[in-house]
Design a protein around this nucleic acid. Structure first.
Length: 430
RNA sequence: GUGGGUGUAGCUCAGGUGGUAGAGCACCAGGUUGUGGCCCUGGUUGUCGUGGGUUCAAAUCCCAUCACUCACCCCA
């Protein structure tokens, strides 16, 4: 038997409905906030990711699906979306047409890590990116939109964590201070952190090894080294979050794993997913557009981990399943022949209708209709054909009505309309 | 890449110290000769993850391998 690849999985009917709901919620919300969808390809030149994410990061260093194309070019299955969106923004000179762009994208990402809870090799992200706005207003608004997204999906047990990583002006100062400490406590650090302290000292801050945590307990905080502008920016973000009633925690240890982040960074964490506690993360990347060959343009964005989000949604899956409105129970070839015509027509006008295709007993057809949760069963057999009337059974009330064979479709349409309005009024009253 | 746990029917799982498989649910049929949910009766389904080894005999013991899972690492 051929199985799917390790870390790659099928999302099956029954689960897909929840995914659709999540995606619809995201689209509606993001478009309310002025975002437009963009769909970049899933493959890019390897160079794009090396230059944006950073050569020394784990993602680029050991997690990318990289291979040679037939022409010998190095290409990579995207490990994240921001790089592609920025590339596209530059390639199509979007900045020239309209200075401010708000874009979102939904799709699969690929990283070759060992799978575990909330982590797959093909995983899905919803990304939102804003170009051309330097103001802290957008930082706060983006976090506000993200939190609204979670609340619309009724996700609980989450909290926002924010930090500022400074800019190219103030970060070197901090690096210096941190490096001094690192070289002092080098002996008590783990092997990884010793490597990090040379290549990417920032990363030592979120090491989970206890000895490192202890050694770095007195580590300087980036926020204490921020330049005047960065401090102002960070304070403003916090103020605007407060203003919208968004509760958050300033987390000095919050360092992002991608090199391009500057200033505001944030992560939405949950306690429900074990080690994979980040359901969403993002931040500002003011230097990236220029670094990839575009003009100097501020930018900020976030990514939501869909697979993880789905796991903590704990919604009633059944609520999202679509059930047939009508099941046509036909007995005998002549009835099946007629049923076939009605089913096609009803399907065509948007009424989900099912029938039995193998000529089984009425009892088993009723059973199937019941299991499928059909609202109505239309029964047609020899008797009905003789009388010229079919039996329409309401599966909830068990009421049965006779309807003429020549106006089946009209009658069903009417019956379902009445039923739907009943539902609507009931929902409105609630 | 590293470590722990698991792998038996479509699903959830039983199968002390070796004797070639079972339950519940699901599915199908019947009871009710044309009416669903409850009930009763019967039925179908397995290369016991895969490959090798020990043995008269392996789901059971040994080795390898794969997959799943959790954790490290890292991240969404």
């Amino acid at each position: 038997m051929i199985q799917s690849l390790k870390g790659f999985r099928d999302i099956l009917p029954g689960d897909v409905e929840v995914w659709q709901h999540m995606e619809m919620t995201a689209r509606d919300l993001f478009e309310d906030f002025g975002f437009k969808e963009i769909r970049p390809p899933v493959m890019e030149k390897t160079e794009l990711f090396k230059r944006s994410i950073g050569e020394e990061t784990d993602i680029v260093g050991k997690e990318m699906y990289t291979f040679k194309s037939r022409g010998g070019k190095s290409i990579t299955l995207r490990p994240e979306a921001t790089a592609s969106v920025v590339r596209s923004y530059i390639q199509h000179k979007m900045y020239a047409v309209e200075p401010v762009r708000k874009l979102y994208t939904i799709g699969p990402m690929f990283r070759s890590e060992n799978p575990q809870q909330g982590r797959y090799r093909q995983f899905y992200q919803i990304n939102a990116e804003v170009f051309g706005i330097a103001s802290p207003l957008i930082d706060a608004q983006l976090i506000f939109m993200l939190m609204t997204f979670f609340s619309r999906l009724q996700v609980k047990d989450i909290g926002a964590h924010i930090n500022s990583l400074g800019c190219k002006k103030c970060r070197p100062e901090f690096h210096k201070a941190l490096s001094v400490l690192l070289s002092k406590v080098g002996d008590s650090l783990c092997d990884d952190c010793n490597k990090r302290s040379l290549k990417n000292p920032l990363r030592t801050l979120d090491c989970k090894v206890t000895s490192c945590r202890n050694a770095l307990a007195e580590a300087p905080a980036i926020v204490d080294f921020l330049c005047e502008e960065c401090t102002e920016h960070f304070d403003a973000v916090k103020r605007f979050l407060d203003r919208q009633g968004i509760s958050f925690e300033v987390d000095k240890q919050l360092v992002r794993g991608l090199d391009y982040y500057t200033r505001t960074t944030f992560e939405i964490q949950t306690g429900l997913l074990g080690a994979q506690n980040a359901v969403a993360g993002g931040g500002r990347y003011d230097g990236l557009v220029k670094a990839l060959g575009g003009p100097e343009q501020p930018a900020i964005g976030f990514a939501v981990g869909c697979d993880r989000l789905i796991e903590i949604m704990t919604l009633d899956k059944k609520a999202y399943m679509k059930n047939p409105s009508v099941f046509v129970a036909a007995l005998g070839t002549q009835s099946m022949d007629m049923a076939y015509g009605w089913v096609c027509e009803l399907n065509n006008i948007g009424i989900p209708t099912e029938m039995d295709y193998s000529g089984r007993s009425l009892k088993s057809q009723m059973k199937r209709a019941d299991r499928m949760n059909a609202a109505y069963v239309l029964i047609v057999g020899e008797e009905e054909i003789k009388k010229g009337e079919a039996v329409l059974r309401d599966m909830n009330t068990k009421e049965q009505a006779l309807i003429p064979l020549n106006s089946i479709v009209d009658n069903l349409q009417k019956a379902l309309k009445i039923r739907n309005t009943k539902h609507e009024t009931r929902n409105n009253i609630k």
